[in-house]
């Protein structure tokens, strides 16, 4: 996966579970779980929503890695 993410860390910092974060972002718990595991790259809209909920920038949560892509 070229897209690394720190969503789990930010969620833990906020002290909420996947269900709660999913509810806040308007997606299912499974989707949050897939993003955290790196099995799903969210849309720009969802990434922005998640960043807004966590009160950070998208780049703080998601990191694009060139090395792993090649």
């Amino acid at each position: 996966m070229a897209l690394l993410n720190y969503l789990k860390e930010y969620r833990s910092r906020m002290g909420i579970n996947q269900t709660e974060l999913g509810r806040m972002a308007g997606v299912s718990r499974q989707t949050i779980s897939l993003i955290e595991r790196g099995d799903y790259s969210p849309s720009v809209t969802l990434a922005l929503k998640l960043a807004k909920i966590c009160r950070v920038t998208v780049e703080d949560i998601f990191e694009y890695s060139e090395e792993e892509d090649s």
């Binding site: 308007g26 997606v27 299912s28 499974q30 989707t31 897939l34 993003i35 799903y40 969210p42 849309s43 969802l46």
Partner: peptide, 8 residues
């Protein structure tokens, strides 16, 4: 009623 990951 499905979200984007479920739709995918």
């Amino acid at each position: 009623s499905c979200d984007e990951a479920e739709k995918e």
